[in-house]
């Protein structure tokens, strides 16, 4: 048992050092602009299609699933407001977060772990580059910046999917749909959703980088790092979601 506690404490210490290093390197000059931009492209553009596709489907499914219970007491006209609140407050960020945790978290962790195993990180260091800033800072910044954008896309696409569903069932016009949505959605909803996504992005980038950068040597280390990254970042996403709900409700 004391061994387990020691391992845990050592892990905490190593995470703390990682955060410290991350913050230090994030402000250190020179900033790796080019690599950050490249990572933004890899993370943002390359995930866009997947996110849009999933968001669209979940918009459609969520609308169809909530319709029966609403229509059972004749409140089918509330469908747009119900769906839009659900999508913008929770569903959009959550879906984007979980998919990115799966896609980006594992990607980042596996990439960094394999770079570590094949000494690419060492090679960078002897080539006059701070690998931490080149690899980790750029990725964490990219995920943190791109996630909110992806959430905006996810929200819009999910609402569009929901609109198409409502339209086919009730023949609701786009104008009416948008009106109903804009009445129930507040600035707070949108900003909190974007803030939430920013935290999700940071968590995904951080967990992925940490798992990859501290991976054990050998090929099994790569797999383990990717696996850990996905599991832990998904866990983080739910925890952050819950915490932010508590905090946002203070303002609501």
């Amino acid at each position: 048992m004391p061994d387990a506690i020691q391992t845990l404490l050592l892990e905490c210490e190593s995470i703390f050092r990682f955060v410290q290093k991350l913050l230090k390197q994030a402000v250190a000059r020179p900033f790796e602009w080019r690599e950050t931009v490249r990572q933004c492209f890899e993370i943002g553009n390359r995930s866009l299609f997947l996110i849009c596709f999933t968001a669209f489907l979940s918009g459609v499914v969520f609308t169809r699933q909530s319709r029966p219970s609403l229509s059972s007491f004749g409140a089918e006209s509330w469908l747009p407001s119900l769906v839009s609140q659900a999508v913008i407050r929770s569903l959009g960020p959550l879906i984007t977060g979980l998919i990115c945790a799966g896609k980006l978290g594992s990607n980042i962790a596996a990439e960094l772990a394999s770079m570590k195993v094949t000494e690419q990180i060492d090679a960078m260091e002897v080539s006059g580059t701070r690998p931490f800033s080149y690899l980790v800072v750029s990725r964490v910044i990219a995920t943190t910046l791109m996630m909110p954008l992806l959430v905006v896309f996810a929200d819009v696409i999910a609402l569009f999917g929901s609109y198409l569903t409502v339209h086919t069932i009730n023949n609701t016009s786009l104008q009416l749909y948008l009106n109903e949505v804009s009445v129930v959605i507040t600035f707070l909803d949108i900003f909190s959703s974007i803030l939430l996504a920013t935290f999700f992005g940071f968590a995904i980038g951080f967990v992925g980088s940490y798992a990859g950068y501290t991976a054990a040597n050998g090929t099994s280390g790569v797999g383990k790092a990717a696996n850990n990254a996905v599991v832990i970042s998904m866990l983080f996403i739910f925890i952050i979601d819950l915490l932010s709900l508590q905090i946002i409700n203070l303002f609501r």
Partner: peptide, 26 residues
């Protein structure tokens, strides 16, 4: 010069970019 055991070429870059890396960086 450090020649790594696993050659440590950057997977995401072409050979050209790999060779340019120390030039632009160092």
């Amino acid at each position: 010069g450090f020649s790594f055991q696993s050659s440590a070429l950057y997977d995401s870059m072409t050979v050209q970019q790999n060779l340019e890396f120390p030039l632009t960086r160092n």
